[in-house]
């Protein structure tokens, strides 16, 4: 009886499960977009010579990286609503939590990527009369982006895994569905296994892509 695996339960509910999976990927993608967009100004502020920009950015990054995702989720979903600050749907609260947490990591990745661009590039750009903003936009950023892509993809994988937590605030993702069906049909092993395998497959593809990107980038001839 231990290894009786009832596949019909899974096939019966496959479309609901896949819908849930899609929701997980969507919320992770939105979260990553927020993280990637927020991380850039954060990284720039963190490198600024002005303490007025640097200190808040450092605080933000410290908070984003120091507070566990699950607490951010609870905070945005329950705590903010209690204080009447704002009230979000599970999807938005989830995407925002992922985005805020991810922004700290993305900021660090951009920062590392910016410092990886040789200082001669800045000098070369200045010597042909490019302004600071032009230097950043046309010379530094395009080069930094190349180094930032592989670790950035790792952040996406991290957020994808983090997105699985969102069933705790009632996001109707795959685990939420799995739990409902599991209770109704009393087939928890089948459903949790199916859900796990599905989400692992997605994260694996993303993780492998990140790995490939990492190897390709490190092989690239740069001097």
């Amino acid at each position: 009886m231990v290894f009786a695996f009832d596949t019909t339960v899974i096939s019966d509910h496959s479309s609901e499960l896949l819908d849930g999976l899609l929701l997980t990927v969507e919320v992770a993608a939105l979260g990553f977009a927020i993280a990637a967009l927020l991380g850039l100004p954060l990284a720039l502020a963190g490198r600024s010579q002005s303490p007025l920009l640097r200190v808040p950015a450092t605080l933000w990054v410290g908070l984003a990286r120091g507070v566990p995702l699950l607490i951010v989720i609870f905070w945005l979903y329950y705590a903010a609503a209690q204080e009447g600050l704002f009230s979000l749907t599970a999807f938005l609260a989830g995407a925002l939590s992922l985005g805020l947490t991810g922004s700290g990591y993305m900021s660090e990745i951009y920062r590392t990527a910016f410092s990886a661009v040789p200082s001669g590039q800045r000098e070369g750009a200045a010597a042909i009369g490019l302004s600071r903003w032009q230097t950043f936009r046309l010379v530094i950023f395009p080069q930094a982006l190349r180094t930032a892509i592989p670790p950035g993809m790792n952040v996406f994988v991290m957020l994808l895994k983090g997105a699985t937590l969102l069933s705790v605030i009632g996001l109707a993702d795959m685990f939420y569905t799995a739990k409902l069906v599991a209770v109704n049909e009393f087939k928890p092993f089948e459903l949790y296994t199916a859900a796990a395998v599905l989400v692992i497959a997605v994260t694996l593809v993303a993780a492998l892509a990140a790995g490939v990107a990492e190897r390709r980038m490190s092989k690239g001839v740069r001097r």
Binding site: G120, G124, A127, I128, S131, P142
Partner: peptide, 22 residues
């Protein structure tokens, strides 16, 4: 901005070339 205008009138060639790889 004023310094930027100065730099357009002064060309510079570096030991490490500093060409833009991208």
């Amino acid at each position: 901005q004023r310094l930027t205008r100065l730099r357009t009138q002064v060309g510079m060639v570096f030991q490490q070339f500093n060409v833009f790889p991208h």
